[in-house]
Design a protein around this nucleic acid. Structure first.
Lengths: 189, 189
DNA sequence: CATACGAGACGGACCGTCTCGTCTTTCTGT
DNA sequence: ACAGAAAGACGAGACGGTCCGTCTCGTATG
């Protein structure tokens, strides 16, 4: 029984989809979230506005798909693993703080704004940025070596660490050199 | 040499200032931050738009002053002090999570949105909501009783705890009963 | 022949500025 | 001392501008 899986007519244009996501990522990184407009995306991607609205309900949904596709951030997401948890976390957070001071804070603010606008982005943000995956994996590895107590739940720990970083990004104050080490000392004990 | 401290003409109307802040707080709590408009505030406060723009540069600046005046939140900011740090933090965070589940999450999301729009609100948020003051005081108290290591910096610890709560609010998922205890276990160790 | 596409017109919401006429406070001249 | 002028805050709202989200074209594709 040959059943057509497609309606009649042309299928969704992959070229348009990619062009929209890439244009969004491009504008997002240069202009920030609130300067990002549907009309701007359409123009940048050489696409009709209706083509965006046909597949995404809102600006933040487009941004969310940009993250899922890995077009945003991707770096700064994977803590190193040299066997020394405290040192690894300090280096990792130090790198993130440098990124924040170098203009990354506004990008993070924009991502949080997108997450507020559409809570599902918040989950994707957390997952895509490795709150659960990469950082948790590093913590599990530390448990095996006896550097992290098995009684401490890793997921809430990761949430606290990432939450502190997000608050630092929201505050917008330049981080002191010792901020990373202090944060690690504070949460590791 | 009599030097006048005032320009000529009438002084700023305290009635208008209070009416604007109260109208903002009222609309903010019922409508949320993005539904809050300058024109809506002006109408609700029976005030000309120019009177708002004369004293505040933006919507988020008005919201910031609402917080400074204590017209927003105020509860949920003071952790108890029974002498048992772990229990106190668990109870305190549990109360906040209940508040978030009961509709408070969208209010927090709106406040974070305001903080993004104007970073100075972020600082005021932190200060006014007790990240530094009340929670730090509770931690210092715990240091005196030997329940919190003096080598752990209290300010970054507070930031991590509040950051975790903010992320929970942004995620929008209802909190499990054990979430508060898990978070405390994760950060206290 | 059904449907996605690029392009863009359209009404609506809200922004931030401005311009009214009115009222209140302080300075100036007699 | 006292009238009036000067300055500025006030409520109200008109105005152009930007962006939204919907819609309607004609074209291209399966």
């Amino acid at each position: 029984m040959q059943v057509s899986e497609h309606r009649r007519g042309p299928v969704r244009s992959e070229a348009a989809r990619v062009a929209i996501l890439e244009a969004t990522a491009r504008l997002f990184e240069t202009r920030g979230y609130d300067q990002l407009t549907m009309e701007g995306i359409a123009a940048e991607a050489h696409v009709g506005k209706q083509t965006i609205y046909r597949w995404w309900p809102s600006k933040s949904a487009v941004v969310a798909d940009c993250m899922v596709e890995g077009l945003l951030l991707r770096e700064y997401m994977s803590p190193p693993d040299t066997g020394d948890l405290r040192a690894d976390l300090t280096v990792w957070i130090g790198g993130i703080l440098n990124f924040l001071d170098g203009g990354g804070a506004s990008l993070v603010r924009s991502l949080v704004a997108a997450a507020i606008d559409r809570p599902s982005i918040g989950e994707r943000l957390g997952e895509a940025l490795g709150i659960n995956h990469l950082l948790n994996a590093r913590l599990e590895s530390a448990v095996d070596v006896g550097q992290f107590s098995p009684t401490r739940p890793t997921q809430p720990f990761s949430r606290a660490l990432v939450g502190a970083i997000v608050l630092l990004a929201l505050a917008g104050e330049p981080a002191e050199p010792e901020t990373a080490a202090q944060l690690v000392d504070a949460v590791l004990g």
